[in-house]
Design a protein around this nucleic acid. Structure first.
Length: 490
RNA sequence: GAGCCAUUAGCUCAGUCGGUAGAGCACCUGACUUUUAAUCAGGGUGUCGAUGGUUCGAGUCCAUCAUGGCUCACCA
């Protein structure tokens, strides 16, 4: 007992007392017929409540106001809270004695009749009740709730109990994800599941997590993208597929990055990146409309208008506009290096035009892209899986969508020339051998698939967590991930 | 990985110049049968993140470490 805090010890004493009185503190399933929000909705904010409105509900006691031989309390269930009223005269002395052993945090089931108090609050006058579970630890304070972010993430269940707005975000997340699926399913896309453990981590430039399979004595990577497997399915004739699921990248943690995050990748044969742009803006606007009822949301105190069509700007135009550099006038690596140096950037030896273009874009342009914007046509050096533009072989049919200064989607007309793909992989391997741990690996098996022939295809990836951030006005990715990655605490 | 900040009761926080630890909520005792941040009277429940050091004396000063947040770097 000496390890328990005073409050825990007292709760355990009450637990023992309940058992002494012949009451099982960990009750069986309770037959619930009503939920708090439904009851409140049924009777409105004023007016008489007819007699005989019987209800049965269960939930957690969130506040208790004892007045001697009667008590008020608030009961919280999945729908919200409702006040309950317990009177010794109504339930009898021995039952009231049991009720007095309840603490904030306990879960009980009860039946009663709905009435309106003098002050007008809809309340359930309890007739019968039963303990369902005794809480052995006290809940966080009712007024300030749980604000210690460390505890909020590590003990998310407490955050959910005491912070309705936190719960609301995760309910919205669930609905938004469901609507993404609905939208894609209605468009005749097929949801598939591909391996999460890869022998080659491909489809993105990122450092993977590694693991090991004992029976096969084989090292495996957790996937960093779903791309290469989904394209194999396109080769296989599954013309419209998507996968919505977890991706793992062994990189930094920030308000925009969690080591595991959720993406949806969508592939459509006989489509190109223009089709993917339309799909992106329609998909996002539609799910916002369906779940939030609007296409204009507030993010960080600014209006974010999701209504299609979103503006399209080539990367070269965007750089000209925000960084005042005209890459149409820059054709060599040396000229690009000079332009970057003039901007005050640290230019690596041997940096090439396409990489510098991308760096300048990320440094000077991205942060300006608050309203949803498509940045179109990316340099080939940073787009090893995208198809080369017919009219400019240094550029690809690729776009990224930006919202609130963050990249939320990446898409291209897929590269389906296996020989070109092999050369691009080989360039990545060379970068890798030069020490770039994020450069891609050569996936021979994927190249073989391409050699069987992949039809012209548009592919799209959307970062679900970031999209949810924007749609729920959440400043940190940890606000939209129930259990964000945390350091292990001793 | 770097810089800055934080860590005190179950929770939210104060703690002055280094002098034996404080408040609100929660909790305990008593009163109270329509309250609602219930009220009234009483009660402080603590390894001051950890370990060293300085000092007669450390929550407070110094060092190291741990955890978290923010910013930067990396990344989506």
């Amino acid at each position: 007992m000496e390890n328990y805090s005073e409050q825990e010890a007292i709760r355990r004493q009450k637990l023992a007392k309940l058992k002494e009185l012949g009451v099982e503190p960990y009750g069986e399933k309770y037959d619930v017929t009503d939920y708090a929000a439904d009851i409140l909705g049924r009777f409105g904010s004023s007016g008489d409540i007819p007699e005989g409105q019987q209800v049965a509900l269960s939930g957690r006691l969130i506040t208790i106001r004892a007045h001697g031989k009667a008590s008020f309390a608030n009961l919280q269930d999945k729908s919200g809270q409702i006040q309950i009223y317990v009177r010794q005269d109504d339930i009898g002395e021995s039952e009231y004695e049991i009720f007095e052993l309840f603490d904030i945090g306990d879960i009980i089931g009860l039946t009663g009749e709905v009435f309106r108090t003098r002050r007008g609050e809809i309340t359930v006058a309890v007739k019968t009740f039963r303990p369902l579970v005794k809480a052995l630890r006290p809940l966080p304070e009712k007024w300030h709730g749980l604000t210690n972010v460390d505890l909020r993430y590590r003990q998310r269940y407490l955050d959910l109990i005491v912070s309705p707005e936190v719960k609301k975000v995760f309910v919205l997340r669930s609905k938004l994800v469901q609507e993404i699926r609905n939208y894609l399913n209605e468009q005749d896309f097929l949801e598939v599941e591909t391996p999460m453990m890869h022998s080659i981590a491909g489809g993105a430039t990122a450092r993977p997590f590694t693991t090991h399979h004992n029976a096969l004595d084989m090292n495996l990577y957790l996937r960093i993208a779903t791309e290469l497997h989904l394209k194999r399915l396109i080769v296989g004739g599954m013309d419209k597929v998507y996968e919505l699921g977890r991706i793992f990248r062994n990189e930094g943690i920030s308000t925009k990055h969690n080591p595991e995050f959720t993406s949806v990748e969508i592939y459509q044969a006989h489509a190109d990146y223009n089709d993917m742009m339309r799909l992106t803006e329609e998909l996002i606007a539609t799910v916002a409309q369906k779940v939030l009822g609007v296409q204009t949301v507030t993010y960080m105190e600014k209006e974010l208008d999701l209504t299609p069509p979103w503006p399209r700007l080539t990367m070269i135009e965007a750089i000209r506009k925000y960084a005042n550099i005209d890459f149409d006038q820059i054709s060599t690596d040396e000229e690009a290096q000079n332009a970057a140096r003039q901007k005050g950037m640290d230019v690596k030896k041997g940096a090439v035009r396409g990489e510098l273009m991308n760096e300048i874009f990320e440094e000077y342009v991205e942060k300006h892209l608050f309203q949803p914007t498509f940045i179109v046509d990316y340099p080939i050096e940073v787009s090893p899986l995208a198809k080369r533009k017919a009219d400019d072989p240094s550029m690809t049919y690729r776009f990224e969508a930006f919202m609130a200064g963050s990249e939320i989607a990446n898409a291209f007309t897929e590269l389906n020339d296996p020989d070109d793909q092999r050369r691009r992989f080989e360039q990545q391997v060379a970068k890798r051998e030069a020490g770039d741990e994020e450069a891609q690996m050569l996936d021979e098996d994927f190249l073989m698939a391409l050699e069987y022939g992949m039809p012209p295809t548009g592919g799209l990836g959307i970062g679900i967590d970031r999209l949810i951030m924007m749609l729920t006005d959440s400043p940190s990715i940890r606000d939209v991930i129930l259990f964000p990655t945390m350091r292990h605490k001793e």
